[in-house]
Nucleic acid binder design. Structure first.
Lengths: 342, 342
DNA sequence: TCCGCAAGAGCAAACGTTTGCGCAAACGTC
DNA sequence: GACGTTTGCGCAAACGTTTGCTCTTGCGGA
């Protein structure tokens, strides 16, 4: 083996491996000179401890598993970025897996990560949140050894399955209220992935605002989608087919809003004059569309950071709980007063 | 410990741990009945082998390290996606790290991943490609134990540092040739990150095409950038300040092209009539800009997949080598004949 | 002088696997 | 019936750490 191990150092320093180990971790019962000598030797040999050997004995891998629906989604990527940074800062690594928006694959991925003895699990955009509670390796573990799971934008499932989320309902509500103030009465909503928690919350926020402002509540105004570019693109036609067509639309996320914008530009439907559109997420790109997208900001990086913090806190035994962050409306120019207002 | 181990199974099956281990891996010298019994027992107990114990003894972690500059870049995310899929298909996991486009952090991350005994390393958008050859843990390992590194869009560095890339030079050349055919004579180039291999290759392709078609080769036409949205946005002004302004521009990537598009829309510069713009990468979003972006496709997912394949092939001892994939121009509507052509 | 105690360091077990080797029984061959 | 071969399985070492316990030495106090 080319890798230098703790016993190589021990041999050269004429001490036992345990002494080396203790010196390296700053154990108090090692004399200062020895420690110095050992440290110098380790440095010189370029020693780096084997994390896997360490994991095996300590039961801690200093690794968090993260399973995402699709890295290609800017929202997800941004959250992942935040998580990576927080993990790195805490001396943790991230074991990465993708579910391709597929519940079965998601669970399979999670289990695979558990095989690697991850200390915790972070799930970005879960499609099967309730199944975590039933994973035997989680369920059967004693309270002390339970692996914390943190779900993004989902409700807390049980004592060890935490949640960090944004208040999607109020976000959507803010957006609709804003549109209402601009004078819109007939506002559509393009929903997100079926069964997704954030989609249903945003829908709830939309409905609530519609009620509060006495807007048109026709069911035809909420249109199915999955949070993809294509959705927005395809939805324009169905929007236009409505009698009368809505004057504004709230999209599940920026991606679908951008798709919609593209379709509108293509079709000659002017935004915001003929149709106001507002997105959700405030992905970096949303500032660079034509017109720039009015959207509701989600603190994406912060959510990622918070997720690992909650996870680590749970590991430390501190009772962590669901965290909800707040967002805000960022007003750009894709929404304006309706042309035929008044 | 709540986790069931191989010795638990051994005890219940009244055999030795080694027999269980062998039964599980289908060793031929285990009788069929025993194997069946053991398998059944394992299934029943929900046994899952500890990957870390396995790694410790075999020296193989079935994990690949991947360090990326920034997941938030759609190109990177797409490549990562491809890599994840290929890794999963091969029974490998991905240990993930970000460099934030910072060479020092990149190397630090790589070393951290090596501490976890990754079997290979994949680097997407390296800023310090030559430093891998000097990592002692790589350099000092015997030929047999050397950890393969594969660099994306960089040249091969040494025998164990592979490369999978797209032919950036010909990609850029194609784009410029296309613009030339449309009638443009004065074509600008917004470059990518300094010192980046793909940026210099694309620049080379640009220069070559400019020469081949006898276009305006003024040095002022190549403008610095870093491949970010902001770059494109800021560059419009400098483009316009040129005398005379170029009629077309090739951007380092789609992101900067999108930034440019946004600035143009904002400023009232019509694309493509007043300015043709072509991007690079063909990220999903490029089909949804206004106008839709003409760009050169990079096979992003395929590059990710190929990277892990090359890595795995190297691990298997087969002499892998640099792979270069080809791209092609995808024509949409952000480029057209110049208004004042002829 | 003897005892107790603290400081410093080593021994060995443990973590959960894999695997080379050995051993016994069964089997086939002449 | 003796002998070589195959089949089936167990023993024990090994992977590189960490850590509870033990051991030795030296020192201070009685």
């Amino acid at each position: 083996m080319s890798q230098v191990s703790i016993v190589d150092i021990a041999r050269l320093a004429q001490v036992s491996p345990s002494t080396v180990s203790r010196a390296l971790q700053g154990h108090p019962r090692i004399s200062a000179e020895r420690r110095a000598a050992i440290l110098a030797l380790a440095e010189e040999l370029g020693y780096r401890p084997s994390q896997v050997a360490r994991s095996l004995v300590t039961g801690r891998s200093h690794t968090l598993g993260v399973v995402v629906s699709d890295v290609t989604d800017p929202f997800v990527a941004e959250v992942l970025k935040g998580a990576e940074m927080a993990a790195r800062d805490a001396g943790y690594r991230l074991l990465f897996a993708m579910s391709n928006r597929n519940p079965a694959q998601e669970i399979e991925a999670a289990e695979a990560l558990l095989d690697y003895e991850v200390d915790g699990l972070i799930v970005i955009s879960s499609r099967a949140p309730d199944r975590y509670a039933r994973l035997s390796r989680l369920r059967d573990a004693g309270k002390e050894h339970r692996i914390p799971v943190v779900l993004l934008n989902h409700a807390q499932v049980d004592e060890f399955i935490y949640s960090v989320k944004m208040d999607s309902e109020s976000g959507a509500r803010m957006a609709v209220s804003y549109l209402s103030q601009l004078g819109h009465r007939r506002i559509a909503f393009i929903s997100g992935p079926r069964g997704g928690r954030s989609s249903s919350e945003r829908l709830a926020g939309y409905r609530r605002a519609v009620l509060e402002h006495g807007l048109d509540a026709s069911p035809e105004l909420v249109i199915g989608g999955a949070g993809l570019l294509e959705d927005g693109w395809e939805t324009l036609a169905v929007l236009l087919a409505l009698k009368p067509p809505p004057t504004a639309v709230l999209c599940y996320n920026d991606l679908s809003a951008i798709g919609l914008l593209a379709a509108a530009a293509q079709t000659g439907v002017h935004v915001p004059d003929a149709l106001s559109v507002v997105g959700y997420d405030n992905i970096p790109l949303s500032a660079y569309t034509t017109p720039p997208l009015t959207t509701v900001e989600q603190p994406k990086e912060a959510m990622g950071r918070t997720a690992v913090k909650v996870c680590l806190r749970a590991l430390a035994g501190e009772p962590a709980t669901t965290t909800v962050l707040s967002g805000q409306l960022v007003v750009r120019s894709s929404a304006a007063a309706p042309a035929r207002a008044q």
